[in-house]
């Protein structure tokens, strides 16, 4: 996939004029009361280009989830603005898909009904949606599980189903909040490869939040390091590794360099991670 590699290089260079699909402009957010305010985000500027994969790493409580919820239209920021393709984000929209840390499968629906829930809620043609869902489930290795109950799936399988569900609305941006945080290390590596492949195939822009520097460096075109109190962007690290990403990526010197550069922020911080 030389096109994707080229794309990654382009984003690394970030030429002016490329219209971002997702943009945060001086976004700040404060929780709590007037008397006891808690600043979660401070002056965050971030652009995500169409098809770009951006990973945010940062310690707990540095406002990553808040930033993602602002992008999802679930909360509106106190300061600044988030926009999708130039239009301000004021409420959730179909072009922006969200994958939460837990798969959030509804236990009273089987896999196919969970995955086609967006179509059902939007009143779309259910038989077409089912066919589409079956195809996507097959693509993530869940062939034959469409009639299973979520409780009978492993955590990794549930999270794949959640990704399929998010893709059902054909989003142009996929927001993922520590989607693999609850999975064991081996499943997690496998899911990383899977996600790299899905992102490369579908050309969806991804904003991924993670605790794992290695995961960020492996998947992303750009790693954004955030620091807490208040939540700020400390550094944006381009990842000059070609696509498709494979297990070999993990042993490339560029990968190690990106990891090291990101890790430096947490070491100088007294290892707050």
């Amino acid at each position: 996939m030389s096109a994707a590699a080229a794309l990654a290089d382009v984003h690394a260079a970030r030429p002016d004029g490329a219209r971002p699909i997702l943009r945060f402009e001086r976004v700040g957010h404060v929780f709590g009361t007037e008397s006891c305010p808690l600043r979660a985000l401070d002056c965050v500027d971030l652009d995500v280009a169409p098809g770009e994969f951006v990973a945010i790493v940062g310690a707990s409580g540095c406002g990553k989830s808040t930033l993602l919820r602002i992008a999802a239209g679930l909360i509106s920021p106190r300061e600044g603005a988030a926009s999708f393709d130039g239009a301000p984000i004021v409420e959730p929209r179909g072009e922006i898909g969200v994958v939460f840390q837990d798969a959030v499968m509804l236990p009273w629906f089987n896999v196919i009904d969970n995955v086609t829930l967006p179509a059902r809620l939007a009143g779309r043609d259910m038989s077409a949606a089912r066919a589409e869902a079956e195809r996507l489930l097959e693509n993530v290795g869940l062939t034959g599980f469409s009639q299973s109950w979520p409780s009978s799936l492993s955590g990794g399988m549930r999270q794949r189903a959640a990704i399929v569900r998010a893709l059902m609305t054909k989003p142009r941006v996929l927001l993922m909040d520590e989607p693999f945080g609850a999975l064991d290390a081996l499943t997690r590596e496998r899911m990383n490869l899977e996600l790299a492949r899905i992102a490369e195939q579908s050309r969806v822009a991804v904003l991924l939040i993670t605790h794992s520097i290695a995961e960020a460096a492996f998947l992303a075109d750009r790693v954004v390091v955030m620091t807490p109190r208040p939540g700020r962007i400390a550094e944006e690290i381009p990842v000059p590794i070609p696509r498709p990403r494979t297990p070999k990526t993990l042993s490339s010197p560029d990968f190690a360099a990106v990891c090291e550069r990101a890790r430096a922020h947490f070491l100088e911080d007294g290892g707050s991670e």
């Binding site: 679930l74 959730p92 939460f100 959030v104 509804l106 009273w108 829930l117 809620l121 609305t169």
Partner: peptide, 24 residues
């Protein structure tokens, strides 16, 4: 809250949220 967020992300109506999440 997670199920509520899910329904908001999919822009479910009040009735749909009741029917598919709150009632079950």
């Amino acid at each position: 809250p997670q199920r509520m967020d899910l329904m908001r992300v999919f822009r479910a109506t009040r009735w749909q949220t009741f029917r598919y999440v709150r009632l079950p």
